[in-house]
Design a protein around this nucleic acid. Structure first.
Lengths: 204, 204
DNA sequence: TCAAGAATTGTCCCATTGGTCAATCTTTGA
DNA sequence: TCAAAGATTGACCAATGGGACAATTCTTGA
């Protein structure tokens, strides 16, 4: 977690990735110019292209880092989870970690997602994110219900997470963290209860 | 529905809105240049600024039109709906109308949504969309369950719709129309059944 | 028929931006 | 100590895009 970053290269790169992501939050992809990113990091434009081949690579790395943050938030909780239900909760809670579930961060994600159709690199990262979430959910749901039900439930959960994040990035209709969690568990717990019952009494 | 568009002004504006939206689908907001929009409409750049004050206004109108399409798709079904359950289905089916639930269209929406944080005009349209969907859902759900349950269910349904649309715009994880509907009704019908039972037997 | 107004085009301008590069300053290790 | 490698800067460039505008063509109604 607290990896060493002694080498100047790594430090600078991290600073610039971070700056890029923060500028992205308020300026969007088109507005996030190299000069603004550099300025926000307290450096000159030249330095950005010294550490990154070009603008695309910079924002690809920025997305990678943001993704890693979310991944760690989930992984950490996943480590403490014992029951399947706790594993599901780890995924949900991780994706609504108060450190990351913020409108500004959602803005940046939105800007990144909007580029996915034209930026294969970003598309790959996005694919990894989805695959990981689906896999995490399935590994738990598989133990609680039949395969097809598990698949559907996983899609519903991850779709719901995406939808709530999306809305959080738009001005209106955004639900705060606690309510988002209420909604998520409202859905999840009912479904788990249903499937638990259905499990042993497969009648109409 | 088939309103008259005899006036040349209206025809041109509609053509250009349409062209703008289509260019947006494959080029994104930054790539959707006035020249490309004009070319795609078979006209010159000058004409675009003859009919629209500037780029923002053009894409604002493009978003308005796309929104109107979705609104009509729902309204049409809503007109035929009699029961609350049918009204909910109208909202859902309308939002997954095969004419509009397509990856390319989702790309354009994504590009538009990404601008919302910095474009008050787009934010207003977005707010209208959300408010309308919420209102449509609530008017039906209110009759089927207590206020708070209705509110949550409405948020879950609309969040789910948004999430599935978002994924449809990203390369991976996108579910086709029929499966999206399966997922939606999987969730909705279970919930309606639960609340119907709970309605008359308010025990644990 | 013809003049006024609208439609349409192409050109021009200016600001911006990604990217290159040579020139400096700093660090470091031998 | 000093030279090589790396860090950093600022100037520069070519491309692009939004927008203004004058010029030209087309419509239309009196």
């Amino acid at each position: 977690m607290a990896g060493k970053l002694t080498k100047l290269v790594d430090i600078r790169r991290r600073e610039l990735r971070q700056a890029a992501f923060e500028v992205l939050q308020r300026e969007g992809m088109a507005g996030a110019t190299l000069e603004k990113v550099a300025a926000h990091a307290g450096a000159s434009k030249g330095i950005v292209l010294h550490y990154f081949r070009n603008k695309q690579e910079l924002f690809e790395q920025a997305m990678r880092e943001a993704n890693a943050n979310l991944r760690d938030a989930v992984a950490e909780r996943l480590r403490r989870a014992k029951t399947p239900r706790e594993r599901i909760a780890a995924v949900v809670d991780g994706n609504f970690d108060p450190r990351f579930y913020q409108p500004e961060i959602a803005h940046a994600w939105l800007a990144l997602c909007a580029e996915v159709p034209r930026e294969p690199q970003l598309a790959r990262i996005q694919a990894v994110i989805h695959a990981r979430m689906h896999s995490n959910l399935m590994s738990a749901l598989r133990l609680l219900m039949p395969a097809e039900a598990a698949r559907r439930t996983a899609l519903l959960i991850s779709g719901l997470i995406d939808g709530l994040w999306l809305r959080h990035g738009l001005q209106s209709g955004g639900v705060p963290r606690t309510e988002a969690l209420t909604l998520m568990y409202d859905f999840i717990d009912r479904r788990l209860a249903e499937e638990a019952g259905r499990d042993q009494s497969p009648e109409a």
